[in-house]
Design a protein around this nucleic acid. Structure first.
Lengths: 110, 110
DNA sequence: TTGACATATTCCGATATGGGAATATAATTC
DNA sequence: GAATTATATTCCCATATCGGAATATGTCAA
């Protein structure tokens, strides 16, 4: 079967580091493709391809203005990721607590 | 170059749905492989392979007891994911605020 | 040792990826 | 309409994936 498509999921789409960079860049404001190309120093076709993936998954929105395409991160599509990873928060808190505890016991043994 | 290895990153490792299931299952308590196999209804070799990936990325820890291997989620390795996605929180808040606003304007136009 | 149980590894095949290069499409300007 | 600018698509390739099936490794028990 091979790996799940990059467009099957926000999880899969976001696995690619460049796509994460793009999402960060487009979070605050919409930007034309040329801006992304210049800022991230990537070949234009590569950027277009990544944007296509992000668009298919709904992680970005587009708007055309003349010959420019303005892309913008759709933050809401990232929420599932944040929520899923958030379910583990209580567990890493536990771990931290334990580590802290041990550290304190070490400083002041007995 | 092809896609980045699944073992290159927590992001890549977690892109696979079954691996997410495993992580959830192992978050509360350590469990032997046979338990995972039974609970998630997956073929044993498949589970072993997924665990290997998770282990390489540090998303799980193992402990051997006799012939059983007890795996457990290392929640701390999930934090980068949560933190990265968390940087977008302010943006989806904005969006929600806007949507809410529009909805209220609609209810009571003029 | 032999056997039984628990888990890991290997081999296979189909598939999709991301990069590079080239080219296509679309919109604007002259 | 031709040239130019902005973006998208296509083609090719090396690579790694996941699933399935078979098998190997490791540990315990009799």
């Amino acid at each position: 079967m091979a790996r799940a498509s990059t467009t099957s999921d926000a999880f899969n789409a976001v696995a690619e580091p460049r796509r994460r960079d793009i999402l960060v860049l487009l979070a605050a404001d919409e930007r034309p493709v040329s801006d992304i190309v210049a800022t991230l120093n990537l070949p234009q076709p590569s950027v277009s391809k990544h944007l296509r993936v992000l668009l298919e998954v709904g992680l970005v929105d587009v708007r055309r203005d003349g010959r420019q395409m303005f892309y913008r991160t759709n933050a809401d599509a990232i929420r599932p990721l944040h929520e899923w990873s958030g379910t583990f928060e209580r567990y890493w808190r536990h771990q931290l607590a334990r580590i802290k505890e041990r550290a304190e016991n070490k400083e002041q043994p007995k």
